[in-house]
Design a protein around this nucleic acid. Structure first.
Lengths: 149, 149
DNA sequence: ATAATTCCTATTATTATAGTAGTATTTATT
DNA sequence: AATAAATACTACTATAATAATAGGAATTAT
């Protein structure tokens, strides 16, 4: 039940973009540096978020990444589902043909419920929530030595 | 976020044992046949459930596997946690030392909540529940050609 | 024209999962 | 005591997914 690093990296990168919302494009290099993620890998991770329309990219000099919509409008479900694919804990939940016992299998119902509660939880959290929470943490710790989020 | 086959196999095998509860030992071969799982692999999958005390095994001729306690007392959490290890979606949730940003990371809180709701759900379901549900399904389908659960 | 950036494709290393195999040990039955 | 049937244990292997790395093409501001 581990989440891939893709999902984690994408989430952290999107939080950076949420912080930068309304301030123009932010370079991949900068995101990668602040979050300590390989540039080249992050590039691949973010790609599907662009094709799905959550981020806008500007090519060329002074280009970069920015959110295509307000942080309030992007949930963790949007992000994770995009980079990770389905959140079904087992394949048969999405695709009944994956197993020939679906009609009689009680565990499938369980996995299905599990998927739903995870989705529900992830949908309940948007990027703006995380920005607020982040600000709170920063104040609470009283630290100013952390340039990283 | 995929569950391993270990977790699925263990769950299905435990349901077989729940059906067989009070009827003496059930052979691995029989469980494997009914659930269409490799015998040798299932053997390894069930091993930790024995060391944790959920199942009792009798060696030798006429030996086999049986639940060590009533089906009501064994939850899906018990089973899955035993064979799969922690249900934390990312390592830092269990082990703060896994990452040096735990103090400032808001996503960690999210993953932590995610872990908790999954655990809560899995703890809410025990083997007796699944046996009942299975019986219901069997009746509903009106099928008697399925010797398999 | 140049430098800075994203875009795209291919390759590789590492790890975890899933499974196979063989032998040792135990025990009921005869 | 011998035998057959079962679990216990250990080692190995194949496959697939993940997590990168690498390099050049395309685009754009200056």
């Amino acid at each position: 039940m581990q989440l891939s690093t893709k999902a984690r990296y994408a989430t952290r990168a999107m939080i950076e973009l949420a912080f930068n919302y309304g301030k123009g494009p932010m370079q991949l290099k900068e995101i990668a540096r602040r979050q300590d993620i390989s540039e080249k890998y992050l590039e691949q991770v973010l790609f599907p978020l662009r094709t799905k329309g959550y981020i806008y990219t500007q090519k060329g000099s002074r280009g970069g990444y920015s959110l295509s919509m307000a942080p309030e409008e992007i949930t963790l479900y949007d992000i994770i589902q995009t980079v990770e694919g389905s959140l079904a804990p087992v394949a048969c939940v999405d695709n009944a043909g994956a197993c020939n016992r679906v009609d009689i299998c009680v565990t499938r119902d369980v996995w299905s419920r599990l998927k739903n509660i995870v989705i529900q939880e992830l949908k309940s959290i948007n990027l703006a929530d995380l920005v607020v929470e982040q600000e709170r943490k920063k104040k609470e710790s009283g630290s100013n030595i952390m340039y990283q989020i």
